[in-house]
Write a protein that binds this DNA or RNA. Structure first.
Lengths: 260, 260
DNA sequence: CTTGACCCTGACGCTGCGTCAACCCTGCAT
DNA sequence: ATGCAGGGTTGACGCAGCGTCAGGGTCAAG
C-alpha cells in the first residue's frame, strides 16, 4: 500500500497534482487508514500513469476522463481533435515568435520598415527627439488605421524630405520645441512655410488626402489631437493656420465656410 | 474624444480588455465626462496599440509595462528572454504532438512498441481480454519503473511464448477467469505448470530478476497487488504456490525461511 | 521527547480576459 | 413625453492546472 507521496513519486507527479485529480474526479478517492491518510493500491498507480500520459500529450484534463473510457474509434477521433488544437497553438506561438523577432529596436516596434526608414531620415535632417516621438506616435495611428495604404504613401512622404523647405520646416519645429519659450517668433516662419507648402500642394491637385473617405474623419481628428496634446505650441500654430485659411495638421485642407 | 468602445474598436480589442489594462495599470485611467464615461484622447490610442503589439507578440502583460519604458538595451534583453520562453513553449507543444501521434491505438497508449507486440502475441494465443487487461496494466507499471530495461527484457519474454507450456498456462488462466467459478479445478493444473516453469528457470540460473535491486521491492509488491486486485483466484493461486515453496507473481522466487 | 518528514483540509494566486448582473446615460423614433 | 436600443458604469465569478501558504495532525527515528 502506498501513501500519496509514494504514489506521486512513482508516477512522477506532485502530491498536489494527485489531490487535484481527486478533486476533479479523474482519480477515485481511495480508502483511508486509521489516521485519515489515503492509501493506494496498484490500480491507482496504473490509472495515474495513464492520466499523466494523456496529459503530457497535451490532452486537457477535462477530456482525459472521457478518453480513458472511450472505445478505439472515439479515442482516435479525440486524438485527431487534440492534435489539431496543438497544431493551432504551435502556429500561434510561432507567429508570436516572428513578431518578437521584429521587436529588436524600439522604432520598429509597431511600424513597418518603410515608416521606420522615414523616421530615420527625419532624424538625419536634424529633427529633435521630441518631434520624432510625436511623428512616431502619429505613424502608429496611421499604420493601425491604414496598414496597407501606408506602404503606398511612404515614397511620396520620403520624397517630400528632398524639398529644402520641408527640411527647414522640421528644423524650425525642432528648434521651437527644444527652445521651449512661450511666444517663439519662429512660429510665424513655420506658418508661412506650411501655408506655402499647402498652397503648392493645392495647385498641384494633391491635398494629401489619398484614398481616405469620410469614415476616416475620426482618425484625422485623433492625429490632430495627438499633436495638440504633445505640445501647446502646436495649438498656437493651428490657430494661426486657420487665420490663413487652412485647417488640420495631418490632412491640411481649406477651412470650411462657417455656416451662417 | 473617444468613448471606451470607440477606443477599443480603433485598436481592435474588446472593451473588457481595455478595462483590464486599466486595472493592472498598463493604461492610465483617463478623464471622465459629466456622466462618468471615460473619455480618451489620441495618446491613449497609441499606448493601447503599443500594448497590443507586444501582447500579440507573446509578451506577458506583466512585462509589457516595463518593456514600454525600457531603454533599447534592456528592451533587447527582454525580447531575448521572451523569445527563449516562446521557443521552450513551442518545443513542449511539439513534444506533445509527437506523443499524441503515438496515441492512435489504446494499447500503445502508455507502452513501447515491443511490449505492444508482446501483448498482441498473447492475444493471438487465445488469452482472454481480462487477462490481457491485467497484463497491460502490469506492463504499464513496469514500463514506468524501468523504461529502458523493459526493452531489453522483451525478447526473452517473447521467446517464452514459444514454450507450449507457457501458452497452455495463459490459456488455462483465461479459461479460469472467463468461467468465473469459485473453486475451479484447473487452478491445480496452473499451479503445477508454474512450479514446473519456476524450477526449470531456477535450474537454468535465470530467476526472472534481471538487474533489479532491492529498491524495486515496492514495485514488485505493486505488481503482485495488481494481480490480486484483478481477480480473487489470483490470491488463491499465490497461496497454493507458497505451499509449494514459491512466492510472487512477477518475480517468482523461493519463499524465504520464516524467521523463527 | 523531540525533530523532521509526511499527511490532512481549506483557501488564495496566477493569466487574460469572457460573461453575467444590475444599473445609468444618450440619442433617435414615436 | 415616452419608449427603446445600444451605449456606458462597477462588481464579481469563471476558466486550467496546479503552486503555495496556513494551520493543523501523524509517523519513524534518535
Amino acid at each position: 500500500m502506498l501513501t500519496i507521496g509514494q504514489l506521486a513519486a512513482y508516477a512522477g507527479v506532485t502530491v498536489r497534482a494527485v489531490r487535484h485529480y481527486h478533486q476533479i474526479g479523474l482519480l477515485p478517492e481511495p480508502e483511508r487508514d486509521t489516521s485519515g491518510y489515503r492509501k493506494y493500491g496498484a490500480p491507482a498507480v496504473v490509472q495515474l500513469i495513464k492520466i499523466r500520459t494523456l496529459a503530457d500529450a497535451g490532452v486537457p484534463l477535462a477530456q482525459v476522463g472521457r478518453m480513458l473510457e472511450a472505445d478505439p474509434a472515439t479515442f482516435a477521433e479525440a486524438v485527431e481533435r487534440i492534435d489539431a488544437q496543438l497544431r493551432d497553438e504551435i502556429d500561434r506561438l510561432a507567429a508570436s515568435r516572428r513578431q518578437v523577432a521584429r521587436l529588436t529596436a524600439g522604432d520598429s516596434l509597431v511600424l513597418p520598415p518603410p515608416v521606420v526608414a522615414y523616421l530615420d531620415r527625419l532624424r538625419e535632417i536634424g529633427t529633435s527627439d521630441r518631434i520624432l516621438a510625436g511623428e512616431r506616435d502619429g505613424w502608429i495611428l496611421i499604420a493601425a488605421r491604414w496598414p496597407d495604404q501606408v506602404l503606398e504613401w511612404m515614397p511620396d512622404k520620403m520624397a517630400q524630405l528632398d524639398d529644402p523647405r520641408v527640411v527647414r520646416l522640421y528644423q524650425l519645429l525642432s528648434e521651437i520645441v527644444d527652445a521651449d519659450v512661450v511666444d517663439d517668433p519662429r512660429v510665424t516662419e513655420v506658418v508661412d512655410l506650411m501655408v506655402e507648402l499647402a498652397e503648392q500642394a493645392e495647385a498641384a491637385g494633391v491635398i494629401d488626402v489619398h484614398e481616405t473617405g469620410q469614415d476616416d474623419d475620426i482618425s484625422f481628428a485623433l492625429l490632430d489631437d495627438l499633436a495638440d496634446a504633445a505640445d501647446k505650441r502646436a495649438e498656437r500654430i493651428r490657430e494661426l493656420m486657420r487665420e490663413r485659411g487652412w485647417d488640420g495638421w495631418t490632412r491640411t485642407q481649406r477651412v470650411k465656410e462657417p455656416p451662417g
